[in-house]
């Protein structure tokens, strides 16, 4: 039976900074749950509290049925924690690092080799290399192997995608998919809104507060404004002009297009023509105009403004 995580009213202050403000949500057994928020939102503070490394000022949490304060010793055996900063021993080899983490938890590489094999086998050819000399993607695979070697029920992965290239990042998410089949519950944080779509459910965190908890589709479907993707030869002027367009709630840079957000109106059939005419009047050239779907990022901004 996979483990769950119940977080109830967790708050934490550092001096006058409110890092976490009454945070509550539950993670279901066997779920890949994403904690999505920019740097400084409080993601790492929450991870450190769940990993029993930091005491909350208020609130409680239970991980795999164990209280994070009273049962911290037993809980640590059931937890795998991969901090955002590479925290393995740079001077030890790949194999020595893994051996070290296995022995700290009173186990051996052999005993749990089957669990780490899909990941560890990719770096095993370099097992005599020092951890400090590995590439970003390989370091990450080693860190994940070390977090898994004691067969934890819950994995806490703090920003595994930061500093690694898209290829390694995709491989990493594929590995998480494999681990889910083993019944491991995972909490993954990222500042990268794109990665939300890869989670079963997500919580949006900003300045210590949870703004929403839902499936990625659920978050997106709650967005009510019509959106258009627009581009022209002069992007900077385009954005400024579109902000003055009648019915525009906002316009902002978004990838290779500007994003025009309109207030929900009654008659939307004529919108496209209206925008085109407006852009022609403003003298924009090489214009492209497409209806757009909201992304997690659009929703995140909407919640930030509320």
């Amino acid at each position: 039976m996979a483990a769950n995580i119940e977080i109830s009213g967790i708050s934490k202050k550092f001096g006058t900074v409110r890092a976490l403000d009454n945070v509550s949500f539950n993670i279901h057994p066997g779920e890949i749950f994403g904690l999505i928020g920019p740097d400084g939102a409080g993601k790492t503070t929450l991870f450190r509290i769940l990993a029993t490394l930091l005491l909350p000022d208020a609130g409680t949490a239970r991980v795999a049925g164990l209280d994070i304060v009273n049962d911290y010793r037993t809980l640590r055996l059931k937890l795998g924690y991969m901090p955002g900063k590479f925290s393995l021993y740079q001077d030890l080899t790949v194999e020595e690092n893994l051996q070290f983490f296995a022995s700290v938890f009173g186990t051996t590489i052999q005993e749990n080799y089957d669990l780490v094999a899909p990941i560890y086998s990719q770096i095993e050819p370099f097992k005599k290399r020092r951890a400090g000399a590995l590439s970003g993607g390989m370091k990450q695979k080693l860190a994940l192997s070390c977090a898994l070697i004691h067969r934890p029920e819950v994995l806490l992965l703090d920003e595994p995608g930061t500093g690694v290239d898209p290829v390694s990042r995709q491989e990493f998410w594929e590995m998480l998919g494999t681990l889910r089949k083993e019944g491991i519950t995972m909490l993954v944080s990222t500042p990268n809104m794109d990665e939300a779509a890869l989670c079963d459910r997500v919580a949006l965190l900003q300045e210590g507060r949870i703004m929403a908890v839902d499936t990625p589709e659920g978050v997106v479907s709650a967005f009510r404004y019509p959106l258009w993707a627009v581009r022209s030869a002069e992007m900077h002027r385009l954005i400024e002009d579109l902000r003055q367009f009648e019915g525009a709630a906002d316009c902002y840079a978004f990838g290779s297009f500007a994003r025009l957000k309109l207030y929900p109106g009654n008659d939307e059939s004529g919108t496209e023509t209206r925008i085109r005419t407006y852009l022609d009047q403003k003298g924009h050239r090489q214009t492209e105009l497409l209806p757009a779907r909201a992304t997690i990022e659009d929703c995140f901004i909407e919640y930030m403004k509320q």
């Binding site: 920019p38 740097d39 500042p191 002069e234 954005i239 902002y252 840079a253 990022e297 901004i301 930030m304």
Partner: peptide
């Protein structure tokens, strides 16, 4: 802009577009 919130990211890219212009 890695790690910054989406609202700031957009404002930041606007500064970049402005500089390019």
């Amino acid at each position: 802009t890695s790690g910054v919130d989406p609202l700031t990211r957009r404002q930041f890219w606007e500064l970049i577009y402005q500089a390019a212009a």
